[in-house]
């Protein structure tokens, strides 16, 4: 675990996740516009008028996929929410994944794409899955995406046996106009990630009281579609 003994996980994430996104928001957003195929397919399969959540919506790129449903996106970064709120007909609010301001059992669907891998303890990652599941109606489904440890063909080259908790650099290019020195330069930020092993996302879902409907691997990421476990009567 990357969090140290002295720092509470929420403080650690504040410093190594939230503050970084707040600072890189605009540059990050300009690089995040292409919808991943599995997510696009999930969003396009929804019934018109469905109401759902995009937990950790970032710049709201998935709010652009389906205009016949109503999505409330939420993110910790107000700079990213400002960008996300421009996607009509949807909505975007600033909120914490572990304290979502939504009614239980009220939503047709939820997505959380590349978000819960930023939480720094297994308990908090499971709690995040539970928080998302809690918002779903009985028949509601959530699609969760996380970065995979097993990605030996990626630019990063991590694989089984690599460290799972790490700081990943984000290099932001700063143009002449915005640079104090007047010269084009770059600045490196580090974000905390927990890279998921095969089967780990499914374990989080089970521990959160959910059941996996379908799961798989897509380009360096693990994904799972899950729902609340139905209590047998």
């Amino acid at each position: 675990m990357a969090s140290t003994e002295e720092i509470a996980p929420e403080k650690y994430e504040e410093q190594h996740v939230h503050e970084v996104y707040e600072q890189i928001a605009s540059h990050f957003s300009s690089t995040r516009y292409k919808a991943w195929p599995i997510v696009k397919q999930f969003m396009q399969s929804l019934t018109p008028g469905s109401v759902g959540l995009d937990v950790g919506c970032g710049n709201g790129k998935y709010l652009a996929v389906n205009h016949d449903v109503f999505i409330i996106g939420s993110d910790r970064s107000s700079n990213l929410v400002k960008i996300a709120s421009q996607h009509q007909p949807h909505a975007a609010i600033v909120a914490d994944t572990l304290a979502l301001p939504h009614q239980a059992a009220s939503f047709d669907f939820a997505i959380s794409i590349a978000v819960i891998h930023h939480l720094s303890t297994p308990e908090r990652r499971t709690e995040a899955v539970a928080a998302i599941l809690e918002c779903l109606k009985d028949e509601g489904k959530a699609l969760i995406y996380v970065w995979a440890l097993e990605q030996k063909d990626s630019r990063r080259g991590w694989d089984e046996g690599s460290e799972q908790d790490l700081m990943v650099p984000w290099v932001m290019k700063i143009g002449k106009k915005n640079s104090p020195s007047g010269e084009a330069t770059e600045k490196t930020f580090h974000r905390y990630y927990h890279l998921y092993r095969s089967g780990e996302l499914e374990s989080n879902i089970a521990a959160a009281g959910g059941e996996v409907v379908e799961s798989g691997y897509e380009k360096d990421n693990w994904w799972a579609i899950c729902k609340r476990k139905q209590i047998e009567s």
């Binding site: 910790r76 107000s78 400002k82 600033v94 304290a99 301001p101």
Partner: peptide, 12 residues
Amino acid sequence: YAVKEGIANFLL
């Protein structure tokens, strides 16, 4: 909870 420039903030 404050709403500023159209955006509601639910951080506690």
